[in-house]
Design a protein around this nucleic acid. Structure first.
Lengths: 204, 204
DNA sequence: GTCTATAGGCAGATAGAC
DNA sequence: GTCTATCTGCCTATAGAC
């Protein structure tokens, strides 16, 4: 498993996706053009059309590669951290790492312009969130069984709150250009799930 | 106070803003054009330019009106709910009401395309979030004093988590078109701040 | 695979009549 | 205040040479 469908055949395709991903993360899908990609790469827009029939197809590939890589990182977390709480922190760490690279969650950005996206891209975006949710549910249920995590209600609701909280923290941190804003919100968010709270141990 | 700078002089200006606001919320600022507004209103783009010199100025007016109205609603909450927890719930209710009208937070959408926005719009967006934060800090500190709310760390961090959580819940609910998704996440979020938790009273 | 050249459409914006 | 007419520039996309 984990074998790549495409080898490093020409890798122009990959470099196009690299550039496009950065542009999409920073400017949104409606905020960049083929000319922007071509300009940054030193090629022409006609060349881009050789690799991707149109912007819609490029966009779909963009999300699919992004989601694939994200899923790989989740697998790595599973393999590295047996503890549910550590897994959650590593999960938040994926978002923080993005911000520290001066990037943002591609699907968070695309969610904001969801209605303008071509259908294949829309499906890929929800697919990404669905996968995140499934993974988080499994972590949350493990954590509950381990006695390391607590939450009221269904694991699915808690999972959605985590995705929402992290995506939102990233979204709001963006205008300020402050990674610290994201981190403070993330800590605050996960603190609500930790069973042993370090702060005021107010026995009722 | 609270006197409007402009009376209902011609109100074409206001109707333009109404239409543009809906378009911006649904498609993002880069996802609609003067032609879209004009088409929806049954006028021409030249007429739009009479009321707003350019799209940048229109955008700035859009945010300013939005922020003004939001601030008014916060004042109404202050006047209506003396209790801090009720205020927080009313605050989340503002977001829920937007979604139920099939709308989204204008500034949340704009935050996602922040880097592409003209400078005056960027300042207006951060101004909106700043105002939210200031209001929330005051509510959180009141709640702490009342003994109705609890949170670890600074009130400012908790405030930012609330804004992030609600904006994120709205963002992620959007691709699914499910208001319930937002509400579940919001409840989950505020539950972490309530001092008396209704769920498992697990005395440790 | 990459190029030049170009099509056809839409963007934001302006001049000037009414 | 709203219109017609028009400009310039950028957009995605294609044809066809190399």
């Amino acid at each position: 498993m984990a074998r790549r469908p495409k080898g490093p055949v020409s890798d122009t395709r990959g470099r196009i996706l690299d550039v496009a991903e950065g542009l999409a993360q920073h400017r949104g899908f409606n905020g960049f053009s083929y000319a922007d990609i071509a300009g940054e790469m030193g090629i022409t827009t006609a060349s881009l059309h050789y690799h991707f029939a149109g912007k819609a197809e490029l966009g779909r590939s963009l999300i699919e590669r992004y989601a694939e890589r994200f899923a790989q990182k989740l697998e790595e977390i599973d393999a590295t951290s047996p503890d549910a709480r550590a897994r959650l922190e590593a999960y938040a760490g994926l978002y923080a790492a993005l911000l520290e690279q001066g990037r943002f969650c591609l699907c968070g950005v695309l969610a904001a312009e969801y209605e303008t996206l071509p259908k294949p891209m829309r499906d890929a975006v929800t697919g990404f969130f669905d996968k995140n949710e499934v993974w988080l549910i499994q972590v949350l249920e493990l954590g509950k069984a381990q006695g390391a995590l607590q939450f009221s209600g269904a694991a699915a609701d808690a999972a959605r709150m985590i995705v929402a909280g992290l995506e939102g923290a990233m979204l709001v941190a963006r205008p300020y250009g402050e990674v610290a804003r994201f981190k403070a919100a993330a800590v605050q968010l996960l603190a609500g799930l930790a069973r042993t709270v370090p702060a005021q141990p107010q026995a009722g």
